[in-house]
Structure formats: structure tokens, C-alpha cells
Design a protein around this nucleic acid. Structure first.
Lengths: 168, 168
DNA sequence: CCGTTTGTTCGGTTCTACCCGAACAAGCGA
DNA sequence: TCGCTTGTTCGGGTAGAACCGAACAAACGG
């Protein structure tokens, strides 16, 4: 009976994770698989995830790979010596966000900043509109890069504290 | 000849914007149309954008609508009295990011926080794993919401300053 | 009032991503 | 060794998005 309540609460949160997943550019299956692992008391193998999510084995295999690459879940391969692979969820969402900032957002910002700076260098410093626009872009992207760099080096509570205590 | 250089630089940056666009979940056409408007000295109508981008009229119509909704470009409908609609780019990218934070990220965070808190309220405060996991989620999302809230209320340079001057 | 220009909407095509089932590879135990 | 379980990879079906052309709506100029 209280188990029913727990299952219902779990299911609600997992459905919310499914929705969040597609907002963040992942598939719904990724949201559900992460959710199941997030609440699981012990790591799960692929057949267990197939059983608990209803997805096909191949889907679970592919999704677990991408989730592992992102850092949302971890492979615990060595356990009991079997070939069996076990996955568990990374419980600290902020760690995952830090990784995403560093691995993807930073990289993307850096790439565009590089392109824009290259364009700026090739353009003679006339007072043209192109020059002025490109100049503004580089300034903005330099700010953004620094912001993301610093933000990803703090914990969530530190970051919150930094913003709350700031007086312009 | 210097016009060639300017056109080349413009084209480079616009191509970079195309790439960024699809990273941010928009289409390549959206990146190009924003880019053309970003460098344009005066607002452009839809036929002009068709001419300068090579996209079909219907595509330009649809893309300009979504870009307007996001706030990346603005409609200047009243001009010379004609039915002609004119678009111009929002040059301050940070303003757009602030809007996105407030309109989409905040809303998304709020929705999940609401779902999670609702699940938490329905669950009796036993020491169960579900309870503990859901508790951790709400704490993280409360932090995230506050962070995004504050970050979107500062200018880019203020935000950078806030992070640079913070001492844990 | 009619032709022209502008903008939106609709149906169709193409392309991509998700997911599935089936085949395959790899190890374990009898 | 053979069967059984686990995990990956491959081909295909399906749904959704991007883009196009054509039809339609709305306003202005003659």
C-alpha cells in the first residue's frame, strides 16, 4: 500500500524526466532509463532495464551508451566477474551539467569565437558596418566563454551564493 | 575589392551562425536569415530575404515567425504605411539569452520542480529511498531555479564580474 | 474595379532520428 | 563441446521536421 504510493511517486518523477529529456535534446527513452536507474537501489543490467522499461534490448543498449558518454549514468563493468554490465545513475545532476558545460557548450562557444575572430582579423579596420558587427560579436562571445568557464568550476550552491551576494 | 573582403567575412560569420543555430535547436535557415538581418544596414522585407537567402517565400515566412517569437528578430510593421513587413535583427545576443532563460528555461525548471514537489508531498516521510531521491531532486532544482533567475537579471558583463569577483 | 505585390497557409517530398526485431559476437556453466 | 545468457550491430519501419511550390488572402496603385 505504501509501496503503491512510492511506485506512483516514482512514476510521476520519471515521467517528468522523460519530458525534460526531450527538452534537453535527448529521447524520451533516455529520460525513462535514467529515471529507473535514478531510483534503483542497486545497479541494473540491460535485460533488467528491458524488463523495467519495456524498450527493446537494442534500444536500451544504444541509449545506455549515449547516457554513459554524457555522464548521466556510469558503467560498473567489473562486478562478480561476469560479462554482465551494470549501470547506475549519476545522482548529482549538477556534476552532469558541469560536464556538459565543459565538453559541449565551451567547445561550441570556442568554435564560433574562433570563426568570428578569424573573420575579424582578415577584415581591414575600416569603419564599416561589418567590422562593427563582428567586433560586437567577439566581445559578447568572450564574455559568454568566461561566464561558462567560471560557472562550471563552481558547485551549484557556490554559484548561487556568488550571484546572491553580488552587488553591481 | 574591400567589398569582396567584407562579403567574405560576412559569409563566414553567417555560416558560423547557421551551425550555431542547429546546435541551439533551430534550423540552418533560421541561422542564415538571422545572419543576413544582423549585417543588414536597414530592415528587410520577406521578398528581399528570399532574394538574399535563396529560400522559398514560405520558408522565410515560417522562419521569421519563429525567430520573432523567440526575440532574435523584430517586426517593424509600420513603415511608410505599406502592407510590407520589415524585419531587423536584435543585435544584443545577451538580451535574447535573457529572454530564453526567462521564457523557456525558467518555465521548464518550474514545471519539473512543481511535478517533483507534488510527488514529494504525496509521499509519507518514511525514510525510503524514493523519498531521499526526490528530496535531493527538489533541492537541486531549487538551486537551479534561483541561479537562472538571478543570472537572467544581470547583464553579461555584470554576470561575468559577479563570478570573477566571488571568493568561496 | 482589376492587376500586382506581399504575406500566410496547405499539401507533398525528403531527410533524419527513434525504435524495433533479427542476426551476430562473446562469454559462462553444464 | 554445446546450450544459454548477455550485449552490440545492422536493416527496416515510422514519425516528425525542414523545405518547397502552389493556392489563397489582403492590401495598395492604376
Amino acid at each position: 500500500m505504501t509501496e503503491d504510493a512510492r511506485a506512483a511517486a516514482r512514476e510521476r518523477v520519471i515521467e517528468s524526466m522523460e519530458q525534460s529529456a526531450e527538452v534537453y535534446g535527448l529521447s524520451r527513452s533516455a529520460g525513462r532509463i535514467y529515471g529507473v536507474l535514478y531510483f534503483a537501489a542497486r545497479p541494473r543490467s540491460i535485460p533488467e532495464l528491458v524488463e523495467e522499461t519495456g524498450y527493446a534490448k537494442s534500444t536500451v543498449s544504444n541509449v545506455t551508451r549515449t547516457l554513459t558518454r554524457i555522464g548521466l549514468i556510469h558503467r560498473r563493468s567489473s562486478e562478480g566477474g561476469g560479462r554482465r554490465v551494470r549501470f547506475e545513475a549519476e545522482p548529482e545532476i549538477w556534476f552532469v551539467l558541469q560536464d556538459v558545460f565543459r565538453q559541449y557548450v565551451q567547445r561550441e562557444l570556442q568554435a564560433t569565437l574562433r570563426d568570428v575572430q578569424r573573420a575579424e582579423d582578415r577584415l581591414p579596420n575600416d569603419g564599416s558596418r561589418e567590422r562593427e558587427r563582428i567586433r560586437r560579436l567577439t566581445e559578447t562571445y568572450e564574455d559568454l566563454q568566461e561566464i561558462v568557464q567560471l560557472a562550471s568550476s563552481y558547485s551549484a550552491s557556490e554559484l548561487r551564493e556568488a550571484l546572491e551576494s553580488y552587488e553591481p
